[in-house]
């Protein structure tokens, strides 16, 4: 009877297995494509722009967009397109590296706090809470006041701001996974804590962190722009999206293109990251929601 059952099962599985495929919604595809486009554009900035973003051209001060300068020129006559492309480069680099650094520190902290609990958890969680209660921008500004402005410092500040958020997500997710019976089973089969954490808990708990990191990357980009807008992030003459917003603010009525294009770049990047995060959420569910 059992062999019969196996045959029947094999047939059912053979039929159903190939039909299981992940179909991501259109919005995710749009998000991924948009982000890929932005990153490619940032990487290929020197090839695409055709102008030096820092070259001042007095004859083209606040020049309207034309064939040679499709996004127009800014208050110093610099090409807005090349500045947007190069600015995007810096902004994406700061956003991604800061979130990457935060994630790399947050994951082990969250794992340890969530899995071992007790005083270790209290120590890690309380320390992170202290970071969390400080207003984000104030924290960044204080750090910059001590160390001095620059994109590296901005990235570091952003990493510190997002570290507790990511660690907290990792901790919660670890708590949930640690209670699963397969983790209990692994423990009672004699597996070491290191083995359980690395092969069961971390792979199953990391999903929400990746989703969160993707969404935070968009916010990090915004935060970098805000810091640069305030003159605390990327320093001139290096182009940055936030800095360009600051430049364009005074000439908004005469030369709106100076403001619009960097603003648009920021908006697109944030939307792309959040669509990506949404798609990752669906893709990273190993159980397959629909089935």
């Amino acid at each position: 009877m059992i062999s019969q059952s196996i045959t029947a099962t094999a047939i059912v599985l053979a039929k159903s297995a190939p039909r299981r495929r992940h179909r991501l919604p259109v919005t995710t595809t749009v998000g991924v494509a948009l982000l890929a486009l932005l990153i490619l554009a940032a990487i290929a900035a020197p090839l695409l722009s055709g102008h030096n973003p820092e070259t001042v051209e007095t004859a083209r001060v606040m020049g309207a967009p034309n064939a040679l300068h499709p996004f127009g020129s800014d208050v110093l006559g610099r090409d807005v397109l090349s500045r947007v492309l190069f600015g995007l480069r810096v902004s994406l680099l700061v956003a991604l590296s800061s979130v990457a650094v935060a994630t790399l520190i947050a994951v082990p902290l969250g794992l340890i706090a969530g899995y071992f609990g007790g005083w270790l958890d209290s120590l890690i969680s309380r320390s992170l809470d202290m970071l969390l209660v400080l207003p984000a921008l104030l924290l960044a500004i204080t750090l910059i006041a001590i160390v001095g402005p620059g994109s590296t410092v901005a990235a570091l500040a952003i990493a510190i701001i997002y570290l507790p958020i990511l660690a907290r997500v990792m901790r919660t997710s670890t708590l949930v996974v640690s209670r699963q019976e397969y983790v209990l089973g692994s423990r009672s089969r004699g597996a070491s804590a290191w083995r359980i954490l690395s092969s069961h808990v971390a792979p199953n708990a990391i999903g929400p962190v990746i989703v969160q990191a993707s969404v935070l990357s968009g916010f990090a980009l915004q935060l970098e722009a805000a810091l640069s807008f305030l003159g605390l992030g990327t320093q001139p003459p290096t182009p940055s999206l936030g800095g360009m917003l600051a430049d364009g603010r005074d000439v908004l009525t005469q030369a709106p293109w100076v403001e619009i294009y960097p603003g648009l770049a920021i908006a697109l990047a944030v939307v792309a990251f959040s669509l990506l995060g949404d798609g990752l959420r669906r893709a990273l569910d190993p159980t397959g929601v629909a089935s």
């Binding site: 019976e181 089973g185 009672s188 199953n204």
Partner: peptide
């Protein structure tokens, strides 16, 4: 001891690592 005493759990959906 762990080698000689083994568990079987309730939920066949939660007792195996989905990955």
């Amino acid at each position: 001891f762990r080698r000689r005493v083994q568990p079987v759990f309730q939920d066949p959906y939660a007792s195996l690592d989905p990955r």
